[in-house]
Nucleic acid binder design. Structure first.
Lengths: 83, 83
DNA sequence: CGTCAATATGCGCGTTCGCGAATATTTATT
DNA sequence: AATAAATATTCGCGAACGCGCATATTGACG
């Protein structure tokens, strides 16, 4: 399932969901992306000042990618996902 | 047209493309997101240490959103887009 | 409950952000 | 070629990063 993100928090939540789906710990992901577990923690918490590099490294570590696209109207289901 | 991004540089290039599509200058976008023109410049250049907040603010200013999804096989067309 | 794994938080350090402000430098446009 | 607009780059500053290292705190499970 793809994840829509419009805020740092939603980005973090998306990363976390995919990481858990792959049964990886923050430490596991941290090793893949050469970052500390603490850094992964902040990224998933949606810390707004997290560096873009950390996001992209995490995506690579989880074999994910970003799509940038015009905002869509949120469906009822998509709204559910935000919570 | 949606943009696929796997690196900070590709993220920046995507932002730039959408900004130009909307006939906005870096200064225009900067005002919308309460950031300096210089900051927009670095974001579009793909500076890896750019803050996540800057990315999300820029997307909001351009009425865009992110999708996080599993990496896809790149089609010939998508590969073109990377250059 | 107790125990261990997983996650969150803290400190000091070096680095780099984004800021205001200003200035190159590049890119139209005529 | 000349001018103006757009973009890139620099300075000093305060703030926050990610780091190693260490320690709470929380969560899962027997």
């Amino acid at each position: 399932m793809d994840t829509i993100a419009r805020t740092p928090q939603q980005v973090g939540a998306g990363i976390r969901r995919f990481r858990r789906q792959k049964k990886l710990t923050q430490r596991d992901l941290g090793e893949k992306m050469h970052a500390r577990q603490a850094t992964v923690s902040k990224l998933e918490a949606g810390e707004p000042a997290t560096q873009l590099r950390m996001l992209m490294d995490a995506l690579a570590g989880l074999d994910l990618e970003l799509v940038i696209r015009p905002r869509t109207k949120l469906t009822a289901e998509a709204i559910e996902d935000l919570f």
